[in-house]
C-alpha cells in the first residue's frame, strides 16, 4: 500500500487560517489501512481543527466526506454537488488525492492533509516500512526476495558496502543492512552464485528518471 502520515496540525491550521467553511475528504484506500486518512482520521482531524479554532474564539464549519478512493475519477465525482459550498478542501489521501481533486475541480482550493511517505507494508500494528520505490523493473528475485534499490541506503546492486556492521546499515543502527540479509538468505538457499557475478548498471528509464509514467492496458482503455 501507499503509506502516508498526517501533516502536523500547525501546518494544516496555517493552510486554512483564512477560511471558515472547509471540507475534509478522506479516502478508503491505502490511507485507511495505514490509519492516516480514512473515515476515522477525518473525524479526528475535524474535531481537532474545530477545537483549535474554538480556542481562539472562532468558529470553523467542517464537513466530513470519505470517498471510496481518490485515485479514480468516478469517486472524485461524488462531491461535485457540494464542492462549491466550501472555501477550502483538505484531501486526506496520498498525494494523488489533492491532485485529482484539483484537476476535477479547477476552482476549488485543495490542500494536502497528509505527507505521502512510501510504498510498503505493516511490520506490526501501527508500524509500516518501505519496500518498493517503483523503479518499474522488479529484480527482487535476484536478491533473495529483498529489494536493494529500496532498502540499501545507497541502492547498491553489488553490496554490501564497507559500512555494513553486524547486519546493520552504517547510517543508522536501527536499519537492517539489506545486503547482509541478501547474503544470509542466498547462502541458506544455496544460491549465493546469484550475487557472485557483477550486477550491471541499472536501466533507470522505467523509473521516474525516465519522465512521468503511464500504464495503458490496450484491452481496457
Amino acid at each position: 500500500m501507499i503509506v502516508a502520515e498526517r501533516k502536523p496540525i500547525s501546518e494544516i491550521l496555517d493552510m486554512i487560517k483564512d477560511y471558515h467553511r472547509i471540507m475534509l475528504v478522506g479516502c478508503k484506500g491505502c490511507v485507511t489501512v495505514c490509519n492516516a486518512g480514512g473515515e476515522k482520521e477525518v473525524g479526528i482531524l475535524a474535531a481537532t481543527l474545530k477545537i483549535a479554532r474554538k480556542k481562539e474564539g472562532k468558529e470553523l464549519e467542517v464537513a466530513e466526506r470519505t470517498l471510496e478512493r481518490q485515485c479514480d475519477p468516478e469517486y472524485i465525482e461524488q462531491i461535485s454537488d457540494i464542492v462549491d459550498d466550501f472555501e477550502a478542501i483538505i484531501s486526506m489521501a496520498c498525494s494523488v488525492g489533492p491532485q485529482f481533486l484539483s484537476e476535477r475541480y479547477p476552482d476549488a482550493l485543495v490542500f494536502p492533509g497528509l505527507n505521502t511517505k512510501f510504498m510498503g507494508g505493516a511490520l506490526a500494528h501501527g508500524v509500516w516500512a518501505e519496500r518498493c520505490q517503483g523503479c518499474g523493473t522488479c529484480i527482487v528475485h535476484l536478491f533473495g526476495g529483498y529489494c536493494p534499490i529500496t532498502r540499501c541506503s545507497k541502492s547498491l546492486l553489488n553490496g554490501p558496502c564497507g559500512g555494513s556492521s553486524n547486519g546493520r546499515c552504517e547510517i543508522d543502527k536501527d536499519i537492517d543492512c539489506v545486503w547482509h540479509l541478501i547474503v544470509e538468505k542466498l547462502t541458506r538457499q544455496g544460491k549465493l552464485s546469484n550475487i557472485l557475478s557483477v550486477q550491471p548498471p541499472k536501466d533507470w528509464t522505467t523509473s521516474r528518471d525516465g519522465g512521468p509514467r503511464k500504464v495503458v492496458r490496450e484491452d481496457l482503455a
Binding site: 547498491l156 553489488n158 553490496g159 558496502c161 557483477v198 533507470w204
Partner: peptide, 8 residues
Amino acid sequence: VYDIDSMN
C-alpha cells in the same frame, strides 16, 4: 545519486 555503484 548512486546512479551506478562502485562495482559498475
